[in-house]
C-alpha cells in the first residue's frame, strides 16, 4: 500500500478573494482511508495551518461537510478508494466561508428558532400513550444530523436564499407536524415565511443526505400537499370564510 493520494485543497479566509488558492498534498494511501484521515495526515505532517471542521469522525455529528470533487459529502464517510486521480476538497458553497474548509453553518439558525415549536395537544392522561406505528413517520426525519449537505445541494436556496428556508428546515417542521402528540400546524409558516413553493421537487437534497432520509418524498411533498389542502382547497376556503364571519 505505498500508493499516494493527491489532494487538492481549497485555502482562503473570509470574503477576501486575494487569499483564495488551491494547495496540493500527496498523502500515503491506507486501506479504508477516508478523506478526513488524509486531512489529518496533512495537518500533523505536512501543513499545520490547514483548517477543517470535524468532530465525531463516525458519521454521527455532521460537522465535516464539504464538497469533494464538486459534490457535497461528509469527509469522515467518504472513502478515498472511490476516486481515481486527484481529489479536490472545497468548503460548502452555500454557507459563508470562515477559513479553508470551514464555513458558517449557523447562519440559518434563526430559521430553526422561527419554526413553530413542538406543542403538545392537551391530553389529560399522563404519561402519554401512543404506539410504535405512530412514531415511525416522524422518526425518519429525526435521523437528521444537521450536516446541511442538503442545504448546500439545494438549487432553490442558491436562487432564493432570502425566501426559502431549505430542505433541512422543512424536514424539521415536518418532524414536528408528524409527532403523534403535536397539536400545532406549520402549514401557514411554511407557506408564508418558509417559501415552500420555491422547491420544485428535484430531489437533490435527498440524493446527498448521508442518513438516506427521503427529504423530498417524506417531508417536502407531504408538507406541500398539506399547504394545498389547507390553503387552496375551495371547500376549506369557504369554510374558513364562513367561520370568520361568525
Amino acid at each position: 500500500m505505498s500508493k499516494a493520494v493527491r489532494l487538492r485543497v481549497f485555502r482562503g479566509t473570509g470574503n477576501d478573494p486575494t487569499t483564495f488558492r488551491y494547495d496540493t498534498f500527496d498523502v500515503p494511501a491506507e486501506e479504508g482511508m477516508v478523506v478526513l484521515n488524509a486531512i489529518h495526515y496533512v495537518q500533523s505532517r505536512l501543513d499545520s495551518s490547514l483548517t477543517a471542521r470535524w468532530n465525531c469522525k463516525a458519521g454521527r455529528c455532521g460537522s465535516c461537510a464539504v464538497e469533494i470533487n464538486g459534490t457535497p459529502h461528509l469527509m469522515c464517510k467518504t472513502s478515498l478508494g472511490m476516486y481515481d486521480g486527484e481529489v479536490t476538497v472545497e468548503p460548502m458553497k452555500a454557507f459563508p466561508l470562515i477559513r479553508d474548509l470551514v464555513t458558517d453553518t449557523t447562519a440559518s439558525r434563526d430559521t430553526a428558532g422561527a419554526i413553530p415549536p413542538f406543542t403538545p395537544r392537551s391530553v389529560s392522561k399522563r404519561p402519554w400513550l401512543f404506539y410504535q406505528g405512530d412514531v415511525e413517520r416522524s422518526r425518519e426525519l429525526r435521523k437528521c444530523i444537521e450536516c446541511f449537505l442538503c442545504q448546500d445541494a439545494c438549487h432553490a436556496i442558491r436562487e432564493h436564499a432570502a425566501d426559502y428556508i431549505g430542505p433541512r428546515w422543512v424536514a424539521k417542521a415536518a418532524s414536528f407536524d408528524m409527532h403523534p402528540m403535536d397539536g400545532s400546524n406549520r402549514s401557514k409558516f411554511l407557506r408564508e415565511e418558509g417559501g415552500l413553493e420555491y422547491c420544485n421537487v428535484t430531489k437533490c437534497c435527498q440524493e446527498v443526505c448521508p442518513e438516506h432520509i427521503a427529504i423530498t418524498d417524506d417531508a417536502i411533498i407531504p408538507e406541500k400537499e398539506r399547504v394545498v389542502d389547507e390553503h387552496y382547497d375551495p371547500l376549506v376556503w369557504i369554510y374558513r370564510k364562513l367561520k370568520k364571519r361568525r
Binding site: 479566509t13 473570509g14 470574503n15 477576501d16 487569499t19 464538497e67 464538486g70 459534490t71 458553497k93 452555500a94 454557507f95 459563508p96 466561508l97 470562515i98 464555513t103 458558517d104 447562519a107 442558491r158 436564499a161
Partner: peptide, 14 residues
Amino acid sequence: MSGFRSKGHPGKGV
C-alpha cells in the same frame, strides 16, 4: 456547482 459562493465572513483578521 461552480460560480456560486455564499458571501464570506469579513476576512479582517485579528
